[in-house]
């Protein structure tokens, strides 16, 4: 048996176990509904259509947060990498960054920007940004000096050198940052929506929870986990493919 098949069998086993535990009353239906009902309810929720605006809003915010984190992160990373003093000054911040509970800033953002999409996108962006910057650094650190010298011989300017030589070389490392940014954007946006917001999947889950509406809450949780999981998996496989092509 391959590990993949064992994993699949295990997943099926866990789902069946949960189904049995709930069906035969070992887990209170008040606490959890059977997985089969979660899927069924999810299907009817999606067909019903009322949930689509929330899905669209959350996914748009996640996309905005992630795209901004990647673009700003690569640009800032490249700039800071060129400026030794600034990098030395910022290194302690980057080292301790992920120890800072970013959600603690959420109340502040709500006060500053109001309770719209901006605070949520900003939280996702902040979570992803430093991962992209740090990984851009580690990629640029590894660019062989021969490449830089060749670029200089060809009289390429700093921008062209970055775009044509160093960033392409650093791409696999930056990709690690992108993968993290994708995961962190989901975590940031949905987390912020759960804490406080007016729309979005996180909000809908919190609302259903407060009303003990398990028939909405569990399907939505499954949906979020499935979407985030498959997006992460797609990036994971894309990376594998890119790396395989590079090795040839």
């Amino acid at each position: 048996m391959t590990p993949g098949r064992v994993r699949f069998a295990l997943a099926i086993g866990v789902v069946l176990l949960l189904e049995g535990l709930v069906r035969f009353g070992f887990i209170n239906r008040f606490a959890m509904i059977p997985p089969s009902e979660m899927l069924w309810d999810l299907g009817s929720l999606l067909l019903d259509g009322g949930i689509w605006p929330a899905i669209e809003k959350t996914l748009t915010d996640v996309f905005l947060a992630c795209a901004a984190a990647v673009v700003v992160g690569v640009v800032l990373g490249t700039l800071i990498h060129r400026w030794r003093l600034l990098r030395d000054a910022l290194d302690p911040l980057f080292g301790a960054y992920y120890a800072i509970p970013v959600y603690a800033f959420y109340p502040l953002f709500i006060v500053i920007f109001g309770l719209g999409d901006v605070p949520q996108v900003l939280i996702g962006f902040m979570l992803g940004l430093v991962a992209v910057i740090v990984n851009t650094f580690s990629g640029l650190d590894r660019v062989p000096s021969v490449l830089v010298k060749t670029a200089r011989i060809h009289r390429l300017g700093p921008v062209v050198t970055a775009l044509r030589v160093s960033l392409p070389f650093a791409a696999p490392y930056i990709f690690t940052g992108v993968k993290l940014a994708v995961a962190y954007s989901f975590i940031g946006v949905i987390g912020a929506e759960l804490i406080m917001s007016r729309t979005g999947l996180g909000y809908e889950i919190g609302y259903a929870y407060n009303n003990f509406d398990n028939a909405v809450m569990y399907p939505l949780i499954v949906f979020v986990l499935a979407v985030a999981g498959s997006v992460n998996a797609v990036f994971f496989m894309w990376e594998k493919k890119l790396l395989a092509r590079r090795r040839r």
Binding site: K179, F186, I190, L194
Partner: peptide, 22 residues
């Protein structure tokens, strides 16, 4: 380990905050 590691990595990247109600 081969079976479990991808599961752990997947768990790391999903928004665990949605599990809060559970």
């Amino acid at each position: 380990g081969e079976v479990g590691e991808p599961v752990l990595v997947a768990l790391y990247s999903i928004p665990k905050i949605t599990l809060y109600p559970i």
